[in-house]
Amino acid sequence: SSSRKAEWEELAEEPDSVESHQGCPNMRTARLLLEGLVGLSQRAEMARNIELSLPGMVKILQAGSEDAKMKILLALQNVLCQLKKSKASFIAVQLVGRLLPLFDSECSELRELSIRMLTELLQLVVGRDEKRMRKEVWWALVPLLFRMSDQVPSVAKASREALLAAAELLKWKTLKHLLQRERLWELGACLVRTS
């Protein structure tokens, strides 16, 4: 958009504005860079280059603002769907553990986005990565059960869908059966017994 272009031009004319104290990007610059990253990640040729930035993106997932974390998740979604299946599968296993802390975010949009992304990651795994993903997803089961009672209906729905995807991956018929019948008390008891 023209306003976005104007912001970029203004930043280009002010070299001192790009970095604040101690060489860290200021908030406005960081926001623009992240918005640019989301846009670039939608283009197949750029998605492959952005893959090299994954370690930095993961750091933002751990320590960035909620807005920054949401933009990183959107960029990661775009990148993963454009990579070869085997590469996307490998990265998916690495990312699961990074999503779990986001389930407790005060921001309901970030909770929902991170839970929906977990569902996508579970569906990306192929071959040998399936076994590794089964180990990773165990840690998500109880947090997802709690989120099924989230006050925000879309978060609760996303949690149920993620648990169904986990049950599918784990080939756990009892879990799937209880979820389909929404028997939450029995579901909780089932998870406690097996965790």
Rank of each mutant, 00 (worst) to 15 (best):
L164G: 07
M46T: 09
E136S: 04
R128P: 03
D150H: 02
P143Y: 01
M46D: 10
R134K: 12
L164Y: 05
S114D: 04
S53Q: 09
Q94L: 06
R31V: 08
L144A: 02
A47Y: 06
R132L: 09
C190P: 02
V126C: 09
P25S: 05
M117A: 01
K69E: 00
N78R: 03
A47W: 05
G39L: 09
R193E: 09
T174M: 11
G39R: 11
P101K: 01
S3C: 13
G36S: 05
V79P: 04
K71M: 04
S3L: 15
K176E: 08
G39H: 10
A189D: 13
L124Y: 14
V125Q: 02
E7H: 12
W8P: 12
N78F: 01
I115M: 03
K173A: 10
R134N: 03
E112Q: 15
N78K: 01
Q151V: 14
L54Q: 02
L83D: 01
I72N: 01
L80F: 00
Q94T: 04
L164P: 06
A167M: 00
L175Y: 02
Q62Y: 08
I72Q: 00
V38W: 00
C107G: 05
L179R: 06
R116D: 00
S114E: 01
V137N: 01
S3Y: 15
R43D: 11
